[in-house]
């Protein structure tokens, strides 16, 4: 009986190794900790990019589940995801709000003019104040915000078909998000 038990040793070692690997796969370096997950948007008052006289607050991000997209003209990846954002806004009717982050206003306006504007409105955060409160790491980042203005998820990096289908779309449609 003792010997039979010994024969299980290789199996146990291998299982332990697989558990480690399993952890490694889940250990996605781009999946950052989101301190504000499932918490409401921080309070803010930022000008609208197109009309700096008009100030927007966290209350403008309520009512309908939406994506908050952090972007800037200095960010090459933002240019990559831009066409897809346009498609999401036009064809899928997704409500997109832009957060223009640490950017130059004229350059940002020119960008939207030239590449077209997928956003319902754009928050202009020249000093990165809201970015700091949110814990923005870089650009692009995209936040899923539910109808009550609660942050549900943060995606770091480019939004593409795969990210939309597998992560963002399901989150936007969950009852938790729309209630």
């Amino acid at each position: 009986m003792m010997r039979r038990v010994l024969l299980f040793i290789p199996l146990v070692v291998i299982v332990a190794m697989f558990l480690l690997f399993q952890q490694m796969i889940g250990h996605d370096p781009s999946a950052l900790e989101l301190a504000r997950k499932d918490k409401p948007m921080p309070e803010f008052a930022l000008p609208d990019l197109h009309d700096t006289q008009r100030f927007l607050t966290q209350n403008d991000l309520k009512g309908k589940p939406m994506l908050l997209n952090v972007w800037a003209t200095w960010c090459p990846s933002c240019r990559v995801e831009h066409p897809y954002l346009l498609k999401l806004a036009r064809e899928n009717g997704v409500k997109l709000v832009g957060l223009n982050y640490k950017d130059d206003r004229d350059a940002a306006l020119e960008w939207l003019d030239k590449l077209d504007n997928p956003y319902a409105f754009v928050l202009f955060d020249a000093e990165g104040k809201l970015g700091l409160d949110l814990g923005v790491y870089g650009a692009p980042e995209t936040y899923v915000i539910d109808a009550n203005g609660i942050i549900r998820y943060r995606h770091v990096g480019v939004v593409n078909e795969k990210v939309w289908k597998e992560i963002l779309e399901p989150l936007l449609q969950t009852p938790g998000a729309s209630s």
């Binding site: 010997r3 039979r4 024969l7 299980f8 290789p10 199996l11 299982v15």
Partner: peptide, 14 residues
């Protein structure tokens, strides 16, 4: 690997 090692643990002659 796990399957074959399980089989090994159960069937290897002792």
């Amino acid at each position: 690997i796990g399957g074959s090692l399980l089989l090994y643990a159960l069937r290897a002659p002792v």
